[in-house]
Structure formats: structure tokens, C-alpha cells
Write a protein that binds this DNA or RNA. Sequence first.
RNA 1: GCCGGGAUGGUGGAAUCGGUAGACACAAGAGACUUAAAAUCUCUCGGGCGCGAGCCCGUGCGGGUUCGAGUCCCGCUCCCGGCACCA
Length: 829
Amino acid sequence: MSQDRHESDSYNPAAVERKWQARWDEQGVNTWTDEQLRSARKPFYNLMMFPYPSAEGLHVGNIYAFTGADVYGRFKRLQGFDVFEPIGFDAFGIHSENFALKQGIHPSELIPRNVERFTRQLRRVGLMYDWSHTVDTTDPSYYRWTQWVFLQLYKHGLAEKKAAPVNWCPGCQTVLSNEQVVGGECERCGTPVEMRFLSQWFFRITDYVERLLENLKTLDWSEKTLKAQENWIGRSEGAEIEFPIARAKAADDRHAPAQVEAEKPVIRVFTTRPDTVFGATYMVLAPEHPLVDRVASPERREAVEAYRRQATAQDLVTRKKTDKTKTGVDTGGRAVNPATGKEIPVWIADYVLMEYGTGAIMAVPGHDERDFEFATAFGLPIVRVVAGEGDDASAPPAEACTGPGRLVNSGRFDGMEVEEAKRAITGWLAEKGLAKARVNYRLHDWTISRQRYWGPPIPILYCDACGTVPVPEDQLPVLLPAIADYKPDASGVSPLARHEEWYVTDCPSCGGKARRETDVSDTFLDSAWYFLRYPSANNAQVPFDPGLTKHWLPVDSYIGGNEHAVLHLLYARFVTMALHDMGLVAFEEPFVRFRAHGLIVKDGAKMSKSKGNVVVPDEFIAEWGADTFRTYLMFLGPYQEGGDFQEAGISGPYNFLTRLWGAVLSSVDRPLDDAVEQKLHATIAKVTEDLEVLSFNTAVAAMMEYLNLVRAGGRTPERAAVEPLVRLVAPFAPHAAEEMWERLGHPDSIFRTARWPDFDPAKAVADTVEFVVQVNGKLRARMPMPRGIAEAAARDAALADENVRKFLDGKQVRKTIFVPDRLLNLVVG
RNA sequence: GCCGGGAUGGUGGAAUCGGUAGACACAAGAGACUUAAAAUCUCUCGGGCGCGAGCCCGUGCGGGUUCGAGUCCCGCUCCCGGCACCA
């Protein structure tokens, strides 16, 4: 007798899941051939952020994120879309390298091991991935094209090498992007970041800043993600104003008169408050400002130098602390306030940052808190130039006064309101050539050089004869050599710079000796274009096939963590926009819709090794099955807010699936009960609406509620009652749904043959409603009423109710509020 | 400091075009079935009063608008996330 029959009628998750995962693989249920990708009728690109394959393995947070995205993808598939759901590994980067160093295992050995483990875990969860279209950023067949992307940006003038102040992490011994510096510390290792001047490759993301900001309005993204991007870009409107230097140093004039003539002896400042220029009583330059030497008077030079040394030696954490006592020194130099014509002193102080604006400010102590604090500490003059309601125009403010008001002590602008004065004063100074309206951004160009080993080498050569030469595209990839001594050092150059046999090569242009760029590129470049690669993952000829790209992109739905709101998402947008301008892709924005999922916490705290509250998913899946685990994760809270992982709670979804299983197996062919039919339609409607907006927890609740009715009192369920429920539950518990689907007599996979159930809105509502009667807004009676009951009839029934009459107390009903099918409110007294 | 999001039973959370607060689930308690256990099914489950019908109170705090407020407005407190000596 064939043992292929079902041994048992009780729900055995492990057996069911093993069976269906094997069958999906055998039959290619989730994979696409390139031919199929080309001919798909209703393409739907369902993307989730690919993981970094850490040695710890997949954690609950990953599974939570992926399951939500997968539930949505499966839902779309059942709705008839051709869903492409790929996955890959973001395996380059400092994270991986640091871990490899710690373990003493070479990353080229460690990473494949981690990838393998991740793959095994992901498969166990039953995600609908197309395992025939994966990417691994460390594979030469992938990073070849990452290097290609670099070259495209280079060719279009968007990549340039320049000496610049950079964030240097002494811990990781590499340069970091501003995005990777969190509170003055390295995002990876927490070491305080120092400022260094190094020659680095930059991408000119600031060329795109206005579009990156403007396009945000067109995106269907989570509000918090949009806001984070907006904050990060940090646009502020104001003016650039010139303050002529009053006393240029005599020494300079003597030694380099021509240069002095060429340079305008002015200090430029950026301000968002040009209206307060009459109140600028001194100026401050950042200690690193190039004009410091020029303005400093000979007798102050020593003090200035001393302060400068002290300020630059300081790490950026301390330097950027708001609550720090203000320090600074007078340079002895003076500048002219272009509004008042008066000479004012020029100071240097570390509260002015070289990297923002022009690195110099006009200080208006009367109307800026920092300037006020500084002026108070050093006895500099404070003048009021804006007076609010009840302010004394003649007296200097007792604290920085930043509110609205009208101008005073500002000559012809007196009496003008602040906003108007901003425009008027900028215009007035502009006429004299001393100012212009300017927009300033917090966003800086993207430093992509990394003095590390574990990344794609930057595809650039330096030739004595030809200068900077891009590696010809047909010579890509520039392979990352296998070296044993990949540990970084304090030299400021990459470990690759220790390998002459690698970096010395022939110049492709003149044939002479050339030297390779020894830095590798930032990991964020790897992930800034991976979504373009997936459909073309098996094409070795091009980075992304134009036809497939046109057919499948932009991405229809993208789901990931909000920790990437400003890093990955901004870079991906920039790269896409640049490729669009090169005519390589048809769209500017890569992700039409993005939703940030919430965080899974344990006992109210973020899971972390040090707290010892990390939940290892494997054990739960082994104990309860992937279907229960998935359903539980989706049920525990609103997906976009995350929730608390409580072990006890998992039995709820398990019971639900078990009860559903029992209902399916015991179901009989019998016409649907009226009440069940109504609830069925209502449930389909609810689940459909909820899944579209990722409200997974309420969708699960609706299904539970429906099953409770179907099984109420131990009644035998109708087949027609449970069959649609199997389809509704399939996105959450795909394996169990397949098995139940099969036992209901369907030979092929539910995801291939079944359609998402339709509902009839007319049948989704009950014939009888529970009608509420209020007296003066307080609930006094509930009564079953036929749907659509008229106000008059409802009123008659209400007035007949004993309790209602009691509260009416014989008084005149002054007013009646009638909400159809809901309530009647009688207002008396 | 600025910008988002939030605060609802013992617990996770439902319900916001203003209209029955606490769906669904966990935990707890009681019961049915069973030799027993598991499984399954039924009931109770915000606080107080009442034999009961029912009544009063209750969605972080204080006001307000409204026939009616968890939901809207004003003023606070606390928590989470982003930005921050950004000129």
C-alpha cells in the first residue's frame, strides 16, 4: 500500500512544511525563467531590503521584516499579479571585515559560510523567493557592475577626487561618510571620530539635492522616512553676505601684492537672518577657516595659533556638544558691517563649524542664543534690532530674542516686520554687491573611498603620463586580490597599498607604468543599485537588461527598516537619478512605494546580545513551525510599529491554525448558513483591505473571528465556509494552506491555481443591526433592528423602550439625531 | 531646542469622515467531554454599586467645542525615533 497517503489527520507542521518546501523547489513554483520574466503579463516587483549576512545568523527582526513583505507578495500573487520576489546578500563592508578580524578567519572564507547559513534559514521560513535570481555583492560577477556604476558616474563628472576634511575613525582606521557618523562617533564601533584632511573620492550628490528634496513630494513612502530624508538634506533659506576685512595684514601686501588684488578681502557668511544684520556686532570664523591667517593681527598671532591647535586636536564629539561652555579668541582683525558701516572685531571659536555654510558667521548676540552666550562670556556688545510686543527698543535684550517682531535700530528698515525685512535687507545689500539670496544644505557630497580591504576596488588608475585614468569597462572587474594581511593600519591608506604586485600595472592609455587606486568603495554603493540587478542577475553581459528593466522597474513595493531612511534610500535615489540622466533607466525614482516596518523588541527593550534578550528564531520554528511563527509575528502588533515578542502569545496563532486544520478536514458539502455567508463576505472584504495597507494584525484577527463563528458550538463546518478561508490564510501560513488546499481536492499549488476570493459587498452586511438608543448622548438601550430602518420607525421603537422612557422622564424631546443603522439620540431637557 | 510617532484592561493590541470603548489573542478562573491527560467545546474576565433589570465611573493630565469626544481644538506630562553649537 502506498505510503504517500496522509498518515495522520492531526496537524503536523514539520511534516507539512518539509513536504511543501520540497515541492515548491521541484516544481519551480516561486522561480522565474528569464523568458517568463520577459513575458510576464502583470509584473509586480516586490522588494525587501537584502540582509547583511552576519555570523549570528538571521534574527527575529529580519524574519519579521521579510515575512511582512512576503505576506504582501503572496497576497498580490493570489490576486493575479506576476510577483517577482528576489533576495540577496549585502556582504561587503566594514561590518563583515571587523567580524572576520575578530574571529581570525578571512572574510572570503567567512562570508560564504554565513551566506549559506542565511540561505538555509530563509528557506525554512517559507519565503516566496526566486532563488534563481539572487545577488551577492561580494561576487565578482556583481561587483564588476558596481565598478561599472562608479565609472558611469566618473564619466559624467559626478565622481571626483578632492582633498577634503573627512571623518576619520581611529577604531576602524578608515574614512566614514557623514551618514556613518552618529553623534560624533563611528556608527560601527563607537570610537570618537576625528577630522583629517585626505584626498578622497566623492560622489557629487549635492548636485541633485534640489531634486532629491523636490521628488519626495511625489513618493508614496512612510511619513517618518520622508521626514528623515528632509531633515537630512537640511535645506535652509537665507543670504550670503560679504563683510570686507578692515585691516589686511601688511606682510601679505608686501609679499604677494598681485594675489591680494585678485582676492577680494572679504569674509563671506551665510545667515538665515539677514534681517538682523544691523545687530551683527562681531564676527566668528571657524578655527580652520583659510582667512584666519589673513585677518589675525601680528600681536594676536600666537594666541590664535594656540587656540587653533587646541581646537583641531579636539575630537568632534566634544567639539559639537551644544552644552559646552563657549571658547574662542580675538584675532585682532576687524571687518566692516556692510549695513552699519562700522568696524567690528573678528574672532575665532570652535562653535562655528567649517563644514557648514561658509565656515564663518556674523554674530548677532541680541537674536541668537549661541552668539548671546558667547558675547556675554567675552564682553562683546549686544544690540537689539528686533522688538516684539512690549519690548523696549532702546535696551539690549536680556536674553537672545528669536521670536517675531519689528525691526529697530536698523536705519530705514525700522518698523518692518521680520519676514519682510529678510527680503528687503538682502535686496538692499545685493544692490551694493554685498549680498545674495542663498539656499544652504546640510547634505554634503558622498565620500565613497574606504581605506579598507573588504570592498570592491575603485576602478581607477594613476599614470605619471596620463594622470587619472578610468579602468576600461572591458577590463572589469578589478578583482579584489586574495591577501592574508588585510588588517587596516593607521597609515591612512588601504591594506591593498601594501601590495605592489597588485597595484602596479600598465596604463591602458599609454602602456606605461601606472598605479591602481588602492581604496575600495563604500558598501552603500553596492546596495545603491542592487534592485536594478535582480531581474538581470543571470546576465553576464550587462549590468541590467534594458528590456527587463523597463518591464519590471521601478520597484512596486519596497519594505525595510527605517534605519536606512537616510543612508541607503538616499543613495539609491541619487544613483537612480544619475543613471536616468545618462539615459540608462527611464525613471528617476527607484521605489514607488516604500513602507518602513517597526522593530521587534523583547520585554520592552531592543534585542541585543549584551542584554541577553535575543530571540533565536530557529528554535521557535522547530517547535511551532514556520507557519505559526509567521502568523504570530504578523499578529503581535501593527507591522509599521513593531511590537513586543512574547513567547506565551505564540500559542494563539498555533491554536488558530490547528482549529482551521480541523475545520477543513471535518468540513462537509452543505449550503452555507446565512450568518456564516454574511460573515464570510465581510471577512474577505476586511482581509483584502487590511493586506493592501499592511495591517496584518487586524487581518489575522478577522480570520480568527470568522473561524470562531464557523466552528461555534462545535458545529460541522461547510466546505464552502472553509475553502475561501484557506485562500485568505495562504499568505500567512503558505505550507499549511497548500496542504489543506490539496486535501480539499485541488491537485496543484494554491499559489498557481487559486484566486483571491471575491466578495459581494451586499452580502457582507447583516440584515439585522444592533441599534443603539441614546438619551442626551448616553446609551440607554440596544435593540436589534432591520438594516435600513427609517428614522420614524426607529423612534417609535425607542420610545416604546422602558429604560429609554425612564430617562426621558416625560420630558419633551427637543431634538433627535439619527445615524442610519447605528443610533438614535434623543435630546431632552 | 526643532521635526515625526505614541500613551487604551493583568498583557499584546482593536476601534479615529466624532456615533455601542476594550474586537482578536495571551494569561487567569470556572465548567462540559474523558478512567486520566492532551485535544476540543462552553462560560467569566476594566473598576465600583445592585438579587436583578440596570446605574455610576473609566482611553496619560487639565480645560474647551459638541446632542455625543479614545477620536477634534487649546495648554501640559511622560515615552520612542530622527535632526541638532546648522548660523
